[in-house]
């Protein structure tokens, strides 16, 4: 809305700016605080943290929890697996969703309603864990990397969002390309997808976060530690913080026993969110900037 900003702003505009600003400011405060709390808690001394309350600043700052986290080789293996799952899984998912969404966005595509309904149906009904597990076993996917990217390769939700976006692209663009003799693949890859960067970025974000946070895949489908996922590793680490389960270690057993499960939990959350926050702006760029549809038309 940069254009309206150039014009002289009325009093009403200024007031509404302030109202929006105050509302968003308050909201942002409440949404940032939990993450800030987690971050500060994770670098505070466990015993100092025990009294609870708010964490505006770390208490007796220490990186002990992070040192313990990165002590073992396994976390790097887990990071590698999850990164690979996120990267390849997201690529495959976005690709597959685009291939599926494009034909479904075309009115002239026969069977469009039938296939759409068929896919929509899977959003409502599913067979459950056990039949899926047996299927993956029969496909010999268990304990392989494939099980991380193939079974969840497409989400109906994301596919429909993409289809919806494709539908909003003026069909005149496509028609002129058809007249030029372009085939469906060429139209999809040369015209539709470049115009759909906001939607592609949004669904890549959803797939990416889904992959990054995936946990049950790692527990159910894989037995071997060389394929362990980050979230599985992290979840098990929380309990291991200086504790036999919830009861703690006997005596003073080195630095780890000075960590509480709570500190470890906060550290683990921080460690799994920070990479997302680093990658996020690269995707955000696409879905906020917008595409000048008008100028392409011209």
């Amino acid at each position: 809305m940069a254009k309206s900003g150039i014009k002289k702003r009325s009093v009403g505009d200024i007031i509404s700016d302030w109202l929006i600003g105050i509302f968003l400011g308050l909201l942002v405060f409440t949404t940032i605080y939990p993450f800030w709390h987690i971050l500060m808690y994770s670098i505070s001394d466990s015993r100092a943290s025990m009294t609870g309350g708010f964490f505006l600043l770390p208490r007796k700052p220490t990186l002990l929890a992070y040192q313990m986290l990165f002590k073992t080789k396994q976390i790097f293996i887990a990071y590698r697996n999850t990164t690979m799952k996120t990267f390849f899984g997201t690529l495959l998912s976005v690709f597959l969703s685009a291939l599926t969404a494009y034909p479904l966005s075309l009115k002239r595509f026969r069977g469009r309603n039938f296939i759409s309904m068929g896919i929509f149906f899977t959003m409502l009904f599913n067979g459950g864990i056990i039949p899926t597990y047996i299927l993956l076993k029969d496909l010999r996917m268990l304990d392989t990397f494939w099980v991380y990217i193939i079974p969840g390769a497409m989400s109906a939700y994301n596919m429909f969002i993409l289809r919806n976006y494709f539908q909003s692209i003026p069909s005149s663009l496509e028609e002129s390309a058809l007249l030029d003799g372009a085939n469906a693949f060429q139209i999809l890859f040369r015209i539709i997808l470049p115009l759909s960067m906001p939607a592609l970025a949004a669904i890549a974000m959803f797939y990416g976060i889904g992959n990054w946070n995936s946990y049950m895949d790692g527990v159910l489908y894989v037995n071997e530690q060389r394929l362990q996922l980050l979230q599985v590793y992290l979840r098990q680490l929380i309990g291991a913080a200086g504790a036999k389960g919830a009861l703690g270690d006997a005596g003073d057993l080195g630095p780890a026993s000075r960590l509480t499960e709570e500190t470890m939990k906060m550290t683990v959350i921080a460690v799994s969110i920070i990479p997302v926050l680093i990658v996020y702006p690269f995707l955000q760029k696409y879905y906020t900037k917008g595409v000048m549809v008008g100028s392409i038309k011209g």
């Binding site: 067979g127 039949p131 899926t132």
Partner: peptide
Amino acid sequence: FKYLPMYG
């Protein structure tokens, strides 16, 4: 991956 397991 979605319809085959639906016998569940």
